[in-house]
Design a protein around this nucleic acid. Sequence first.
DNA 1: GCCGGACCATGACAAATGTCACTGGCCTAG
DNA 2: CTAGGCCAGTGACATTTGTCATGGTCCGGC
Lengths: 203, 203
Amino acid sequence: MSGSIRLLIADDEHLIRGALVALLNLEPDIEVVASADNGVTAVEQAIATVPDVCLLDLEMPHADGLEAAARILAAVPTRVVIVTRHARPGVLRRALASKVSGFVPKSTPAEDLAHVIRDVAAGRRYIDPEIAATALTAERCPLTDRELDALRFSRSTTSVQQIAERLHLAQGTVRNYLSSAMTKLDASSRHEAAEKAWQQGWI
Amino acid sequence: MSGSIRLLIADDEHLIRGALVALLNLEPDIEVVASADNGVTAVEQAIATVPDVCLLDLEMPHADGLEAAARILAAVPTRVVIVTRHARPGVLRRALASKVSGFVPKSTPAEDLAHVIRDVAAGRRYIDPEIAATALTAERCPLTDRELDALRFSRSTTSVQQIAERLHLAQGTVRNYLSSAMTKLDASSRHEAAEKAWQQGWI
DNA sequence: GCCGGACCATGACAAATGTCACTGGCCTAG
DNA sequence: CTAGGCCAGTGACATTTGTCATGGTCCGGC
């Protein structure tokens, strides 16, 4: 009947996914109609079942929560709530840009989650106030495009040499970008700078 | 009555803890009698309630799962199951050394968890076969004590200088240990080496 | 037009990091 | 006892990394 909220749950950790299904199925007005362990099958299931609300973990293999959210919202008339362990300000920004309706950290009390889902199903939005506050106080990214490029690669590759090759630049240039980024982010090594930029959700 | 298993749950993420409580309370023969969000209160609760089984997350603030397990087992006649996200071989070894009865990753299917708890409550042991296999095939730590010392600090401090001061050694010596560790672990920077050692549970 | 500012790009230099060859102490096997 | 292996510890050397000064290009404002 019309009062029952049809829910999709996606989380790559089987134990947590199962526990969430159990928790939310206890609510009389919520019915879990699909679950997935990665972004790609989440999209498929969403298209197949057309749930009222999709609860997506941000950290998932193949396609992360944001990508899955974008694809689902483009294909199906539904609403999306993102759940995440590390709430990075920049990610919230991007999530809102792709019309996500809810954003909660995994530190949320379990009892509150059902409230959030009901709110979102009713067409309202819910953003965790803590994350919203940090996202608003956090100044915008001070890094230039090329600095971001260099930092991105610097997370995966070992040497400046390799980064330079990928970007088709001289080694000195790359070092320069990284150095500049380090100054702006007040870091003392490029790994630290990359880490900080990642925590802010800038890369 | 005698068939009901009294359970303690400790996990620092509120959402997951709540969901696990809901999931396991659904089992007719399991009763969750305590829950905690860090290692220290887990120990306190265990002493206060004397549960049959304690389900401890490995990654927790204040005292991690292993430390909490050791303290609980020293104080109360109970059994411990460790749950973890990253199953590192060395950690399993240490867990077994401190008489833990169960060890499961968070990728375990939710339905299996109740089985594990029943097994452990009945005095049996349960080790995730996947982790057990890697722990057995993984060769023993090839690093020397001082190399491990250096690597430990290298995770938190930035410069060799600082590590040298903490260990009361010359910079060259520290570099040497790190270099040696890097060779043994086939890493190309000390951060990578520290990371690998950590993943193996050696530090 | 042309000036100032922001970004891209480079090479030279200094400081750090990683490699190597070496010494000395301790233990064990022969 | 002593030769050889293993580990702690060190300094010299080459490579990598981070900093700096500089030049070029594109843009918006005066």
